[in-house]
Amino acid sequence: MSGNTAEKIFAWLEERLGLEAIYATVLDRKVPKVNWWFTLGSASLFLAVMQGLTGVFLTMYYVPSPDKAYDSIQYIMNGVAFGWLIRGIHHWGASLMVIVVFIHMLRTFFYGAYKYPREITWLTGVFLLLFTLGMGFTGYLLPWNQRAFWATTVGTEIVGTVPFIGDFLLKALRGGTDISAVTLARFFSAHIWILPAGVVLMISVHMYLIIRLGISNIPSDEE
């Protein structure tokens, strides 16, 4: 085996897939001279990927049912090798992601990076922030301990204060009048299917626009 064989394999793939063009488009982009605040988008993406990966593996043992949810998490923490690590990353990563995404939004706002022609990047970012908060809200119930239960009780009651349709929204969110097995199942479904689907869609558009339009310069005093 020599570098020659590897080169041939790469050349074969390159001819068919156009890897270098993808690399050049995605990574070899011209960027203005910017500062460390501009790394927060990449940090958000990294955290989102980590949350996705650890989340996928957590579903291997987690059971979204009132009689087993707590026990299955105890099993993840104490019975499975590195279960504490996978859950720990997911748990702390969730808080960190809300913080990083929020600061990313602040940077974009204060640098005026949401202006023409990047309005849609900003708009998808708004959805991504909301989805991140939604992921935090739905994920918080899943451990099914006292804190999870009462936090969700309070959180859904806040929705219930919406004028006229509040009562309906509360019931729709809980899947009934009480926080029950139905609530746990639908929060789980939202947490692992519905919201992630939205996140993936929005990240795709967000990333496409960043590649297409490039990132904005730091505004100068004259602007």
Binding site: L53, M60, V80, A81, L85, I86
Partner: peptide
């Protein structure tokens, strides 16, 4: 750091 624990995490019930 992430990959090796995940392998352990998946196969540990079998061990």
């Amino acid at each position: 750091i992430v990959g090796i624990p995940i392998i352990g995490y998946i196969i540990s019930p079998a061990l």
